[in-house]
Design a protein around this nucleic acid. Sequence first.
DNA 1: CGCCATATTGATCGGGGTCAACGGCTGTGG
DNA 2: CCACAGCCGTTGACCCCGATCAATATGGCG
Lengths: 241, 241
Amino acid sequence: VSLIIQRKLALLGPLSDEEKRAVETAAGRVRRVGPHENLVREGTRPTECNLILEGFACRYKILSKGTRQILSFQIAGDFCDIQSYVLQRLDHSIGTLTPCKVALFPHPLIKELTERYPAIGRALWRETLIDAAIYREWMASIGRRSAYQRIAHVLCELSTRLRAVGLARDDGSFRVPITQAELGDALGLSTVHVNRVLRRLRLEQLITFSAGTLIIHDTEGLAAAGDFDPVYLQITEQRAH
Amino acid sequence: VSLIIQRKLALLGPLSDEEKRAVETAAGRVRRVGPHENLVREGTRPTECNLILEGFACRYKILSKGTRQILSFQIAGDFCDIQSYVLQRLDHSIGTLTPCKVALFPHPLIKELTERYPAIGRALWRETLIDAAIYREWMASIGRRSAYQRIAHVLCELSTRLRAVGLARDDGSFRVPITQAELGDALGLSTVHVNRVLRRLRLEQLITFSAGTLIIHDTEGLAAAGDFDPVYLQITEQRAH
DNA sequence: CGCCATATTGATCGGGGTCAACGGCTGTGG
DNA sequence: CCACAGCCGTTGACCCCGATCAATATGGCG
């Protein structure tokens, strides 16, 4: 539990030991949620924020036609709805893809934390800005990249993010329990076409992706295929202020 | 000058008079920039942030093929690169569409402001979260809405945002100096197709859009055509904390 | 063992891209 | 004052990527 939190805090910025302890202490109860349930629902006004400890979730909107757009994938370590602390009404839902374990942070505690420790407020702000950077990259993908590039790109992104929180397996494979339909809803593609592109990526020896396991055989080849450059994820660099 | 800042501060959240004055005082020099120039460039590390006082600008990325994705339109009152204060390296550029007047806020002053007045930090955070909400809505548009819906949607969004900062004209028209090519780059469409859809919207008596002037003849009709619901812009409601 | 979600493949279709040409407006320089 | 250039808007013709429809595996799980 605290291992994930610690890893994520290290990614978010330079916090002192006291600040890190304060964040851990603020975590309220832990909730277990089944697969394909909502963590939060569009239109509601939550009073606490969810930090994902285990499992996969996604942000999504349902449009008027009934189609779904997945807006982001959320993995362990993601403070997936921290924006509900600042904005009053959610404009989208967050649903689990797999069973999840989440830690709940009541808004009043977050308020205390951020006012007592500006560095924590800054770290949380930073997390939401990285989310925004990912949105921008997805916009570029959905708007201007081909289906082949989009899928290669998102797989690169997921592997990079999973590695950053220590979720790569020893053999270099990843657990990526995302169905082809979900990939399609994330990338603006149909399930059928996702399937065809995955087949092509497999035939080109770039990846193996089945049964929720992703193996990238050729990292550079996949990055080239997806026009992927990880700088937007802001993982390596830290800003000392 | 300060009129725009005041309007925008009022939208961002409940700030005291002292806090508002502090923000105004923090504005450094004012810069005038010609059309089609960069305010900030991808990959750089700015040391000050731009608040747009007049004119239109846009965030964009140039992809490997040389195509452009416009990520957002920025109008008067937008703190268009506040994220450069928190994240070290820009993942995209911001360019002007028209001549612009911008006020510059040095990062150290922003740091002082946000640490002395938590409400200001919160207001800036709020601004970046609203940006993110717009990104999410655009993702849904580009990913799952038809060209016709996308264009209607973005025109509704622009008119709502312009009205919110007092840029609607008395006759209800708007200055929207965005070319069809730029609309296409924002929505993931070709210039040709943007043109055809605009013709259809004109024939349907929903809008007139020429010479940089947008007139919406049927607000509800356009909103229906674009599946537009303005809640994500967070304009009306304010959160009292 | 049977059910339901997911993956896979083929056949066909269509929204929107691409290419090309032309018109209109504006600014600029001779 | 006119000629020309360049950008933007407009329209037609054609094409292709990816959607849709449909049928068939496959496989986990009660």
